[in-house]
């Protein structure tokens, strides 16, 4: 099981890895340009590159297998089936507001009544049952520092189950991350963790 954050947030780690990748690519390009004036018989030069290519191929395949193995240990899709939730919250996205309430609901998404803020306990497994009353939305939870910690789409006709455990008390914020019309950028909500 990979935790959400090792030393840095996933976002920062992704940025560092991408930056290192970009630096490596630029270095290769500079090397090619810098050494291109060397005169070498074409088959010999290509031979050297293709020899390196074989090693690269095996290295890449090994990296892909390892990365697939480790990153697929923690997927957001099955948690609600494998882990018991301490609390269930119904969430409905509607142009342009979030409606939330404790517990499950029997009413249709369009008729669901709820508020755009909710209070939930810390260190408890919370399951959000996320739906939409109209178009596609995206229920994204931000911590107080402004980092996304979890998200799922809110789709008409479907319920997406998102499980998350809030480890820190305080304010969390909800933004819509799927373009849903004119007031998309103002479709917000809050979660108070106590």
């Amino acid at each position: 099981m990979i935790p959400n954050n090792l030393f840095l947030s996933i976002q920062t780690s992704a940025a560092i890895v991408s930056l290192l990748g970009a630096i490596l690519v630029v270095c290769i390009v500079l090397f090619i340009i810098g050494t291109s004036s060397v005169d070498e018989e074409k088959h010999q030069a290509k031979g050297k590159v293709y020899k390196l290519r074989v090693k690269y191929f095996y290295g890449l395949m090994a990296a892909i297998v390892l990365l697939l193995f480790f990153t697929m240990q923690t997927l957001p899709y099955f948690k609600h089936k494998t882990t018991r939730s301490d609390e269930v919250v119904t969430v409905v996205g509607a142009q342009w507001a979030w409606k939330m309430d404790h517990g499950t609901t029997e009413v249709k998404a369009k008729e669901f009544e709820g508020l755009n803020d909710i209070t939930l306990p810390s260190n408890k497994v919370i399951q959000f049952n996320v739906m939409s009353a109209d178009v596609n939305h995206n229920f994204a939870i931000y911590n107080d520092k402004g980092d996304i910690v979890a998200q799922t789409q809110a789709m008409p006709n479907y319920t997406n189950h998102l499980q998350y455990t809030f480890e820190e008390r305080g304010e969390y914020h909800i933004l819509c991350l799927e373009y849903c019309g004119m007031a998309h950028a103002y479709m917000t909500g809050s979660i108070h963790i106590e």
Binding site: I2, S9, I10, Q11, A14, T71, M72, T74, L75, P76, N138, A140, D147, I148, V149, A150, Q151, L177, E178
Partner: peptide
């Protein structure tokens, strides 16, 4: 997927 859950959109 592990990364996309915080970078998506």
């Amino acid at each position: 997927i592990y990364v996309n859950k915080v970078l998506h959109n």
